[in-house]
Amino acid sequence: MNKPLDPAATVTRAEVEDLLYHEADLLDRWRLDEWLGLLTDDASYFVPPNDKPDADHRFTLFTVADDIVRLRERIIRLKDPNCHAEFPPSHTRRLITNVRITGVEGDMIVVAANFAIFRHRRHEPAPRQFIGRYVYKLKRTDAGLKIHERRAILDAEELGVMGAVSFLL
């Protein structure tokens, strides 16, 4: 009689928002090891190319396509003072809005949100702005809601003035 529950029915938008805002706070404060703790052990992180936002990273050159192994290496790199693109670390401020639970894929909860990230660097009078939307796949685990996949899709036609995507979007 144990019918599997609809995963979406087991989580509220408030819970999802709490997770996303907590994540944004950890990333803005460069608490990157704690951030890794929000992910499942098989998590992945994608930034599709600006000209092919809906593409598949196996056939299309992405800006970032990290499996968990490379993501852990990326965190090692970002914490290293020899990560020159991010030393001293950028000051970032993330505004996360329009959070919605949009569907269910197997045991995953699919979440959409919008982001505006302002990145400040020394000697740069104006912040570089990264505007776009997130698609998350979240998983309910014994340790709480975890991120299985995060996809940061930029709105701009090209990276252009954003330059390198050297910090985590």
Partner: peptide, 11 residues
């Protein structure tokens, strides 16, 4: 050429 272009500025 594989799909997906990277276009970025360097100052």
């Amino acid at each position: 050429i594989i799909s997906g272009v990277q276009e970025y500025d360097i100052k």
